[in-house]
Nucleic acid binder design. Sequence first.
DNA 1: AGTTAATCGAGACGGTACGTCTGGTCTTTAA
DNA 2: TTAAAGACCAGACGTACCGTCTCGATTAACT
Lengths: 222, 222, 222, 222
Amino acid sequence: MPGVSGAASASAPASGSAGSASSAAGRRGRPRSEVVERAIVEAVVRLLEDGVPFSELSIERIARTAGVGKATIYRRWDGKEALFVDVVRSMEPVAPPLPGTSVRDDLVAIIEMLRQRGLAKRSSALLHNVFAQMQSYPQLWDMYHRTSIAPRRERMDEVLRRGIANGEIRADIDFGLLGDLFVGPMLVRTVLRPGDTPEQGSAERIVDAVLEGVRPAEGPSR
Amino acid sequence: MPGVSGAASASAPASGSAGSASSAAGRRGRPRSEVVERAIVEAVVRLLEDGVPFSELSIERIARTAGVGKATIYRRWDGKEALFVDVVRSMEPVAPPLPGTSVRDDLVAIIEMLRQRGLAKRSSALLHNVFAQMQSYPQLWDMYHRTSIAPRRERMDEVLRRGIANGEIRADIDFGLLGDLFVGPMLVRTVLRPGDTPEQGSAERIVDAVLEGVRPAEGPSR
Amino acid sequence: MPGVSGAASASAPASGSAGSASSAAGRRGRPRSEVVERAIVEAVVRLLEDGVPFSELSIERIARTAGVGKATIYRRWDGKEALFVDVVRSMEPVAPPLPGTSVRDDLVAIIEMLRQRGLAKRSSALLHNVFAQMQSYPQLWDMYHRTSIAPRRERMDEVLRRGIANGEIRADIDFGLLGDLFVGPMLVRTVLRPGDTPEQGSAERIVDAVLEGVRPAEGPSR
Amino acid sequence: MPGVSGAASASAPASGSAGSASSAAGRRGRPRSEVVERAIVEAVVRLLEDGVPFSELSIERIARTAGVGKATIYRRWDGKEALFVDVVRSMEPVAPPLPGTSVRDDLVAIIEMLRQRGLAKRSSALLHNVFAQMQSYPQLWDMYHRTSIAPRRERMDEVLRRGIANGEIRADIDFGLLGDLFVGPMLVRTVLRPGDTPEQGSAERIVDAVLEGVRPAEGPSR
DNA sequence: AGTTAATCGAGACGGTACGTCTGGTCTTTAA
DNA sequence: TTAAAGACCAGACGTACCGTCTCGATTAACT
């Protein structure tokens, strides 16, 4: 599962996917223990849940908590930050299926999921921190972006494309901006202003406001 | 100017602005040197501009660069992070005046300013980091929020209220959400996805999209 | 009283004792306060008596305890060690008069005084430390030697000379060694092995043993 | 070799000499390097020999000189002073064998050794300082006393007992004082008044003077 | 069954930075 | 001018981590 370190990421699944391959290279010696792997990630999660301030997490302490040698961590990850990427991944909720009834409902579901994530006790303070830290390491952020954000974004883009196709959404809007119009208002609250996550029903209100526009309807008022 | 440490923040400007006041208390001992203060903040800025990776900034190094004792820094700020708040403040651009021609134009100006800040070489990578770090220190973030973000937000809220009053903006939208509808899409890009700052003209496009709505105008009206 | 710094040593008592004199030279500005001087020395003594480990004495702390500015101390003494010389001097007991009945009795009185000093609570642990420290500063040790040890030594040498003159002491012994023969055994105990100070009567036993010799009297004489 | 910290002192040589024993305990983790150990002690010696004033020795500087991390020093010794005990020990000359011809000659050999130690360039100023410092740390002094002084003292006591047994020394003298009568005069010079170490032949003169007594022989003079 | 090689926990290693404390000096205001 | 106060630069204090490196002891896969 850990993969930021470098080739490991690619080769680990490779050895699994390459069919007969496992024997080919002939990895020798004792294989890495998955148990240990999980123990490490879980140690981080546990520490964070126990209220250990994020800044007090250290490889040294994580190793101690997990009952693991420091080298065992460095063997798998390049450093604290790389480890966090996997921790975050292990905590990200699985994207639930979209209702599919209408583009509007799908968008609401997506935005609502962001809200839920912001509310989750675990995620809230916790993810927020890891998040903030990760931003200072472009490489890691990129990689997180690639493996976690991008797929979700793609899922949303599909919904939007469907909306454009079936006339639920205007076709003359910069597509790159379109997604952010829906996602931005909620993200700004959950990520940038944690603790200020909007209440129930906000997802719908955001989606509707963006769809309908904020300017008074022209018809009657004229 | 440094103020996270205690009441200094509030009182420093006070003692400056309160006219004759300075003599009142009769502080004893050698007063703190403003020169030193500036030297410290500037040392941080210089280091960051010289490409020193953010994670390599340390009080020790900052002191060395500024030609200052470590204690002199700790005397003013509670730690690295508190110092950064002031650094960020010293670099934040002054909010330019709003055109005032229409609510729409004012909003564009505000959003455009966010874009500009994201573009500024200094701000970009640099501020982004300090920013990210600060998010892990709730106290600091609060305080930054209070002194930097809130005033700007208030400025925007006034514009929005004006818009509601003069009919440029619907009155039936959750006011708390309203601001984020405009600000969110741009912030998401500049803060959360630095390096992906939208191109020229995006501010207008965002404001217009949010105003008009993303749903196609009702059939006949087109 | 302080004198290591320079000529002050000689002039201090002068300015103090000379009554009307103070005007003579025409010193300008606020005169140095003797109160302050005593406060400093006493602060050191008090701290030591309060059981503050010697190594934790610092100019900073002494100044704080004495309610005095650091500069005020530096104005009088060259440093911690120079100050200690005066502290030690302020605590050294005055040499009592010698009985003068016989050279042997005078020597016993001198050695007994060394024993007493070693026993004195204040002196014991306390002086011992200052003592030990001073030894690492040749200059200070010299000066302590000159003002405190040498006079006492001279007093003893006179006794010894008297002894040689009146036949109580052999004339064929290296005079330089002679003093140490009496003084050494006791000093070794009180200075080098504090807490092992010999019991009552040791002074006499030492003096007599050195006088008579440790070898059994020649056969027949017994 | 370092032993103040704990049992290491006793057990380290044990594990080496005890043949098969090493397996017993089953030390875990990387073992401490003896090379490093020596490097540290030697760094101190070198610095002192290079004329670095004793007061300028700091763990920081010692570590730098030895090319060693500070923690590596603290891992072995409790502090500067504890380290010095081992430094002193590494510099103490090995006690040479006694001639054994007569008690008088053995005593001369012992006292002469003290003189030699006081003369040695290395020892002289150097040992004197460490010595002086150590006296301010009762624990350390005790321990130095136990491991270095006491054994030598015991050796001397044996000589004295032999002297009493074979009639070379009077039996009616307080045995506790006896040793100091010989040792005191020389120690006072080498330890308390470094730089004033007596010249060649003093050991004999001291021993003889103490043996014979300082009072003129009664026989002829009467 | 034996060999081989990478793994594991543990912890030493050279470093760097932490936040605190001292050492001396300098700069204020008050006396 | 001196005094108290306290800021100032410098740098040591002892601790905590960093990422690397031995250790002895497992632990599989390959002989």
